[in-house]
């Protein structure tokens, strides 16, 4: 066989075989991976909306889902917004908890991120980043405090801390949060958020 032909044939068949093998593996593991993600989401709602006993899916679109957290009596006590947006290098998936009137954040959880380890990946860090997201005023757009401060008391009501050395990742999270709060407010106004459509638990 001519060398050039052999090169093409070998590379193509290696690629094809790998591709089909991976497709099989992908199909076999897909269900379990999805199940793990769903479990993680359920655990996250309980975390971001304190006092949640059960949760309901209220709205679903691509990369934007809204869950409702309910207390023991079944009263809606807050929203958990599961949303994905572009980070520094890849998608960031996070869940933001807000109160029922959409004026205060309760908690932020990062579900998935591939930011730079040691810098942007600190968006998962409780003490550096996440704790500053509790109880922020989200009736207006939240802004970033630069340079970073040490305690939450130094921040204005609608401010959150920046991660030193990871401004882009901090800004990405901020943008995702502000957009999703705005989107949810719009949806509520349009009457598209209805309670009790689908029980998660």
């Amino acid at each position: 066989m001519k060398l050039s032909v052999q090169m093409v044939v070998v590379l193509t068949s290696v690629g094809l075989l790998s591709g089909s093998f991976l497709a099989t593996v992908g199909i076999l593991t897909k269900e379990r991976v999805e199940l793990n993600k769903q479990r993680e989401v359920e655990a996250a709602i309980i975390k971001v909306v304190p006092g949640t006993e059960s949760s309901t899916k209220l709205y679903e679109a691509k990369d934007f889902k809204v869950y409702g957290g309910k207390n023991q009596d079944g009263t809606l006590i807050g929203y958990g917004i599961l949303v994905s947006g572009i980070g520094f290098q890849d998608k960031i998936t996070l869940m933001l908890g807000t109160d029922i009137s959409l004026t205060k954040t309760t908690r932020l959880e990062i579900i998935e991120q591939k930011e730079t380890p040691g810098l942007g990946a600190k968006i998962e860090d409780e003490d550096v980043f996440l704790k500053f997201w509790e109880g922020r005023d989200c009736s207006q757009a939240i802004s970033l405090r630069k340079p970073a401060v040490k305690t939450a008391e130094e921040l204005a009501a609608s401010e959150v801390n920046t991660i030193t050395g990871a401004t882009i990742s901090s800004e990405s999270v901020l943008k995702i949060v502000n957009n999703s709060v705005e989107k949810l407010r719009q949806l509520i106004k349009e009457g598209q958020i209805q309670d009790g459509e689908q029980d998660v638990h």
Binding site: L11, L22, T29, V33, N36
Partner: peptide, 23 residues
């Protein structure tokens, strides 16, 4: 084309390991 072929083979098994861990 040996390096390219090796990398494809290696990447295949890496993806398998990655999916297995995720699942």
């Amino acid at each position: 084309v040996r390096i390219a072929s090796y990398i494809v083979i290696i990447a295949t098994f890496v993806t398998v390991a990655d999916r297995f861990l995720a699942a």
